[in-house]
Amino acid sequence: MQQQIAAPQHSTQTRTCLIVEDSTFDQERIKRILDKSFKGVFVAVAATIEDARQHMSQYQTSFILLDNNLPDGTGANFAVELAQDPNFAKIPIVIVSDWPTPFMFDKAQSAGVIHVVNKSDFGARYIHAAMNHKVIPKRIN
């Protein structure tokens, strides 16, 4: 797992974004958007779902930007897993995928994912939505 910044000491104003993305190009693109538009957000990067699990077991995560196609599974299935865990169910998730499909949308919606967006359309407004998302309990059908 890669981390841009060492794990922060959390205060009431510190937010941590976990980027779960295996493409270094896309990792850098998302980090640039975060750095340009949002000051004071610490960024952690995980290239696999297992790396994301390890990060989340050790550090507080404020919101997640999640690719769907990962080496060890799909982001939509990981979102469902998180929605079923009371420790993580309230974390806002945005799926950022090359090829969003109707099946992915349905699974993401059932897990309470706040947005599913194509990587080419991804921008600061989706980060803003995640950072300001009102916590609504996720439901699993």
Results as ranks from 00 to 15, higher is better:
residue 61 T to G: 04
residue 9 Q to L: 02
residue 41 V to L: 00
residue 20 V to K: 03
residue 125 R to N: 13
residue 66 L to H: 05
residue 109 Q to H: 14
residue 58 Q to S: 14
residue 30 I to A: 06
residue 97 S to Q: 12
residue 29 R to A: 09
residue 94 V to I: 12
residue 104 M to A: 07
residue 118 N to Y: 05
residue 73 G to P: 04
residue 9 Q to V: 15
residue 84 Q to D: 10
residue 82 L to R: 06
residue 82 L to W: 01
residue 105 F to A: 06
residue 54 Q to D: 13
residue 26 D to M: 04
residue 28 E to L: 03
residue 106 D to C: 14
residue 103 F to E: 01
residue 122 F to K: 00
residue 6 A to G: 10
residue 12 T to A: 12
residue 42 F to N: 12
residue 106 D to L: 05
residue 111 A to D: 11
residue 52 A to D: 09
residue 128 H to P: 01
residue 125 R to H: 12
residue 124 A to Y: 11
residue 121 D to G: 15
residue 41 V to A: 03
residue 64 I to C: 11
residue 37 S to A: 05
residue 72 D to S: 00
residue 60 Q to W: 06
residue 59 Y to H: 14
residue 54 Q to R: 15
residue 139 R to S: 15
residue 90 K to Y: 05
residue 60 Q to C: 11
residue 137 P to K: 07
residue 47 A to S: 02
residue 129 A to K: 04
residue 2 Q to G: 08
residue 130 A to V: 03
residue 136 I to G: 08
residue 122 F to A: 11
residue 138 K to Y: 03
residue 132 N to C: 09
residue 11 S to Q: 09
residue 69 N to S: 01
residue 132 N to H: 12
residue 53 R to D: 10
residue 100 P to S: 00
residue 38 F to D: 13
residue 30 I to R: 04
residue 121 D to T: 01
residue 93 I to F: 09
residue 26 D to E: 12
residue 47 A to Q: 01
residue 128 H to T: 14
residue 49 I to P: 01
residue 85 D to Q: 11
residue 47 A to V: 00
residue 78 F to A: 13
residue 103 F to P: 08
residue 47 A to I: 14
residue 51 D to A: 00
residue 63 F to D: 02
residue 25 F to P: 12
residue 136 I to E: 13
residue 13 Q to G: 03
residue 123 G to N: 11
residue 36 K to S: 12
residue 28 E to R: 12
residue 126 Y to L: 13
residue 108 A to F: 02
residue 54 Q to H: 10
residue 42 F to K: 07
residue 81 E to P: 02
residue 57 S to M: 14
residue 69 N to F: 11
residue 140 I to D: 13
residue 56 M to P: 09
residue 20 V to Y: 10
residue 130 A to Y: 03
residue 23 S to R: 11
residue 45 V to R: 06
residue 47 A to G: 09
residue 138 K to W: 08
residue 69 N to D: 11
residue 31 K to P: 06
residue 66 L to A: 04
residue 17 C to E: 01
residue 42 F to G: 00
residue 110 S to K: 03
residue 93 I to P: 07
residue 117 V to W: 04
residue 40 G to A: 06
residue 125 R to A: 13
residue 113 V to G: 00
residue 90 K to H: 07
residue 121 D to N: 04
residue 44 A to T: 09
residue 109 Q to E: 12
